[in-house]
Amino acid sequence: MKIMTCPFNGPRPVSEFFYWGEIRPMPDPATCSDESWADYIFNRNGAPGVKQEWWCHIASNTWFIAERNTEKDLVLRTYLFEEEL
């Protein structure tokens, strides 16, 4: 069983979580070009590496950030968005 650690509820099986993809800065939709908006909504950094991703603990609806190596499947760190501000 793979374990993900919710910053709020502690270590839980990964089946209790929902994955929402890599954190990416959004360009300002009012000012950016069609091309850079298309790049934002469609294109992804598909190559493996350490990425910061949104995850959610479903049972408690806790959204948090996981730093994960997508090649080795290692979770390096999880933390709440507010903790990083």
Binding site: G21, D39, N43, R44, N45, G46, A47, P48, T70
Partner: peptide
Amino acid sequence: FTPRILDMVDIKTPITI
């Protein structure tokens, strides 16, 4: 392995693995 090869030629795609 597509994203790794495409990184070599700097082509962006929506592909995720």
